[in-house]
């Protein structure tokens, strides 16, 4: 039930910024949920706010989960709206595929136009809720020298990691030894969070993906 305890903090966070929008929703919730564990329902309902904000019905940003960055900041994916995003899923203790995948994202980034480099965000989401704490992700960022504002590493709850992976088309499975089997995928999202391009597999050519990002920047 771990995931049910999480939202309270987040609701408070959202409330501070969007009290007016959220308040009616909460009131309505209380009229319908009378007791017990209703608090988890609230974190679902903050999305009625996000839903209004997210213009695209097929945007990945419809996933209303709450994430913590490697800098310890709280965010939702909808916060990424406004510029193209390169997103991939990895885990920190992975020594084989993941460094290659991060490097692939790096290669994609370095083949972008200067304008695109300024705007684009590279979002690496961890599969590993238990080991990849925000602190551990910060160490990872340091180790791989990714410490620019373009890179965001995200820590999330298991359920939300599963949702995002499924939406992106990433399959993964936690092995009994704590490591993960996962498909290797880099996804380009447009400014609204709609999937624009996917690069499957490791060490793929990045020209096409770079072209896609550059085009998105100009739109």
């Amino acid at each position: 039930m771990n995931n049910l305890l999480k939202p309270a903090a987040y609701v408070a966070l959202v409330l501070s910024s969007a009290l007016l929008v959220l308040a009616p929703t909460l009131a309505q919730d209380h009229s319908q949920h009378k007791s017990g564990h209703e608090n988890h329902a609230n974190h679902k309902n903050h999305t009625s706010m996000d839903a209004a904000k997210i213009s695209h019905s097929s945007s990945v940003y419809q996933v209303d989960a709450h994430w913590i960055t490697h800098k310890g900041e709280h965010m939702t994916l909808a916060d990424l709206q406004g510029q193209p995003v390169i997103v991939s899923m990895i885990y920190g203790s992975c020594t084989t595929a993941c460094p290659v995948l991060v490097n692939d994202a790096k290669r994609l980034y370095s083949s972008l136009s200067d304008e695109a480099k300024k705007q684009v965000k590279l979002v690496m989401v961890s599969f590993d809720n238990s080991r990849d704490t925000p602190k551990a992700l910060a160490d990872y960022v340091k180790q791989y020298n990714l410490n620019s504002d373009s890179w965001v590493f995200l820590h999330g709850e298991d359920q939300d990691i599963r949702t995002l992976a499924t939406v992106l088309g990433v399959r993964y499975r936690k092995r009994p030894d704590g490591d993960f089997d996962h498909s290797n995928l880099i996804t380009v999202l447009d400014k609204n969070g709609v999937i624009e391009h996917r690069v499957e597999g490791l060490g793929q050519p990045m020209d096409k993906a770079a072209k896609v990002v550059d085009t998105l920047i100009q739109q």
Binding site: A51, S58, S59
Partner: peptide, 10 residues
């Protein structure tokens, strides 16, 4: 949000 008329296309 999860009613048929409202569910996100995603």
């Amino acid at each position: 949000k999860w009613q048929r008329d409202n569910i996100a296309a995603l």
